[in-house]
Design a protein around this nucleic acid. Structure first.
Length: 258
DNA sequence: ATGGCTATATGTTATAGA
């Protein structure tokens, strides 16, 4: 089973690029971030025509997440638990129905800039909620994949120019420590299991020729519970998508499980 | 670069992203 995460930076803006990638990559399950659409306006037809069940959790203008799955989805949860007052659409999870079911979570973690400030406080509070939810998952026996745009550069090797990020919310010690705490509960950073060195990126800014200069960062991650990690057979980053017509600033990142 | 570009709604400018 191939499970991918892709921050598409606008579902309507990616009306051509997303189906083109789906046709080429043939993922079974995809979590999308930054759909920037309300659910009623989400263009489901091109995806359903390709055999995907579509579940979205959107809001007006920005944020928004979705799950596409060729297998049926059940037990769909919208919103990260822990704060009923949080109105930002950044979390969706569902069980992929198959002989060995998998719980798939799609997340769009807050950016947190400028830091310090209320946006950074919100990021850290959201990460604390994520840690609690991730810990609760480990009590069960079901494999869990938490995939998405974490907006965290875990280590200096995950940025082409780490010195440029030292005051940024994506790379501040508090953000990196919060990410590490979640991993250290017992999760596996899937991409790192197959790529130990520097230069592995998932995002290149639209500005300043970042793509042409390969000035990238690795911020899109798939964290696997032990039961999911035991089934990992492969990983990939579809980097070429960044060089195609009208791209997102992120590229798809994927795993395969047996 | 004290944000060079992109997307969306609040729409011919502001907000957000990373």
């Amino acid at each position: 089973m191939k499970i991918a995460t892709f921050n598409i930076n606008g579902i309507k803006a990616r009306a051509e690029a997303l189906p083109a990638w789906l046709d080429q990559a043939q993922p079974d399950v995809v979590v999308l971030q930054e759909i920037k659409s309300v659910d009623d306006a989400f263009p489901r037809e091109p995806l359903e025509q390709r055999g995907y069940h579509v579940e979205s959790h959107g809001q007006k203008g920005f944020n928004g997440v979705a799950i596409l799955s060729k297998l049926p989805l059940s037990d769909i949860r919208r919103g990260l638990p822990g704060d009923d007052a949080d109105e930002q659409s950044r979390w969706i999870e569902a069980t992929v129905e198959c002989p060995r079911p998998i719980r798939v979570c799609g997340l769009y973690l807050p950016n947190g800039n400028p830091a310090p400030g209320p946006k950074f406080d919100y990021k850290l509070a959201w990460m604390a909620r994520l840690e609690r939810h991730a810990a609760a998952f480990l009590n069960g026996e079901v494999p869990v994949v938490m995939a998405g745009d974490y907006n965290v550069i875990p280590d200096p090797i995950d940025a082409a120019r780490p010195e440029a990020w030292v005051t940024d919310a994506l790379f501040l010690p508090e953000s990196r420590a919060a990410f590490r705490r979640i991993v250290n509960l017992g999760y596996t950073d899937a991409i790192r299991t197959r790529n130990s060195g520097a230069g592995i990126y998932t995002f290149w800014d639209y500005q300043a020729g970042a793509w042409e200069r390969n000035n990238g960062i690795r911020i899109d991650h798939l964290l696997l519970s032990p039961q999911a990690a035991d089934r990992l057979t492969g990983t990939g980053i579809d980097k070429a998508v960044r060089g195609l017509e009208k791209p997102s600033d992120h590229v798809p990142v994927w795993i395969t499980l047996d």
